[in-house]
């Protein structure tokens, strides 16, 4: 089995990093992963995105044309990727910034007020972690416990003090999706 993800938003919203963390959590889960930043003409138009594939098999194309799951942090991301998601797929969107309503009836939508939650936790910077927590909970393919381990492993030295805030952000996201 294989799942294909696109994480998309404005540059600076931490989607590239969120994709890396998702990939590393996939490795901890014992799966094959690939991560690739937005490449080609899709780089234009107000979004920075990355594609992540997490698979039990060797991964074919790392390029994701029709994702199973999309995290959309802003409206251009929602507009761009909503039509491309596979039937029965998952769209996790940042309802703090996206006020439009879902256009498809064959997807599962999870609305996450990620900016508000992140601010309530102390920093808007963890909005990406709120989204990631919500996505992992709703999707279920990569474990949140592995994500937690990755964060603990990566955030060392002066960054270690931010671990609890990030873990809290993931938990909040899980609650919203659960």
């Amino acid at each position: 089995m294989q799942k294909e993800y696109i994480l998309s938003g404005f540059g600076g919203q931490g989607l590239m990093l969120a994709g890396v963390l998702l990939s590393e959590a996939g490795i901890l889960d014992g799966k094959n992963v690939s991560w690739i930043p937005s490449y080609g003409p899709e780089m234009r138009g107000g979004t920075a995105n990355c594609a992540v594939v997490v698979s039990e098999e060797p991964i074919g194309s790392p390029i994701v044309d029709n994702p199973d799951v999309v995290i959309a942090m802003n409206l251009p991301s929602m507009d761009k990727f909503e039509p491309l998601i596979k039937k029965g797929g998952l769209m996790v969107f940042n309802s703090s910034l996206i006020k439009s309503t879902p256009k498809r009836d064959d997807l599962t939508y999870v609305a996450v007020p990620a900016n508000e939650i992140a601010e309530s936790l102390g920093s808007e910077k963890v909005a990406n972690m709120v989204m990631l927590g919500a996505m992992l909970k709703a999707d279920g393919w990569v474990s949140t416990s592995s994500l937690g381990k990755v964060i603990e492993k990566k955030m060392t030295g002066s960054k270690a003090k931010f671990i609890p805030m990030n873990i809290a952000a993931i938990k909040k996201g899980e609650e919203i999706a659960g």
Binding site: V20, S23, I27, N32, V33, S34, W35, I36, P37, Y39, I59, P62, I63
Partner: peptide, 10 residues
């Protein structure tokens, strides 16, 4: 190529 250079894998 640029894909193999820019992508990440385990």
């Amino acid at each position: 190529d640029g894909v193999l250079g820019q992508m990440m894998e385990s």
